[in-house]
């Protein structure tokens, strides 16, 4: 009996939660025109193409308005830049770089907010390193610094006679 009561209470709570989730989902849909950059930095291009000319860049947490989408590309405007971005750089969650208590409670559901720097982060990496002094990160840091620019890529493709399928937008 006691158990039944508990189950009934849990069910009721679950129904209330489900209703709340539906309401939350509706809000997210209405606000879907705003997205956040979810990578350290990402290029913004003049055309929706892998070979589109790079006109600027946006950084982690930057918020953009989505003006138009075309396949995996979104036309974005925000932080003083506008152009096309690949959707892999974007999240529908609002990314909060410095979190306050109130936002953190919402973020726990994982649906609307994402907190930058939480979870597996540099503190965890430092803790790991302290416990594994034999694991060396020197070359990991070194390889991360090798960054090839869009212009270098263009030259590389051209010099090698490699012609991308999707159009000559440059």
């Amino acid at each position: 009996m006691l158990q039944f009561k508990h189950v009934a209470a849990a069910l009721t709570r679950r129904m209330i939660m489900a209703a709340a989730l539906v309401a939350a989902a509706a809000v997210v849909t209405a606000a879907a025109a705003t997205m956040s950059v979810q990578v350290k930095d990402a290029p913004v291009r003049a055309t929706p193409s892998f070979v589109g000319k790079v006109v600027g860049a946006l950084a982690y947490g930057d918020q953009v308005e989505i003006q138009q989408t075309q396949g995996a590309w979104s036309k974005v405007a925000g932080a003083g830049v506008s152009g096309w971005m690949h959707t892999s750089a974007l999240s529908s969650k609002k990314i909060v770089l410095a979190a306050g208590q109130k936002q953190a409670n919402v973020a726990a559901s994982g649906d609307e907010l994402a907190l930058a720097g939480k979870g597996f982060n540099s503190d965890v990496e430092a803790q790991f390193k302290a416990g594994h002094k034999d694991i060396d990160f020197t070359w990991i840091n070194r390889m991360e610094k090798i960054r090839i620019s869009a212009a270098e890529m263009q030259v590389f493709l051209q010099n090698g006679g490699v012609t991308p399928k999707e159009g000559g937008a440059k």
Binding site: V39, F50, S88, M153
Partner: peptide, 19 residues
């Protein structure tokens, strides 16, 4: 890296957090 990073641009996930 020139070859690999160029190829990655043509994948369905050209952007990752650290590239």
């Amino acid at each position: 890296n020139v070859l690999g990073q160029t190829l990655a641009q043509f994948s369905d996930r050209p952007e990752t957090f650290g590239g």
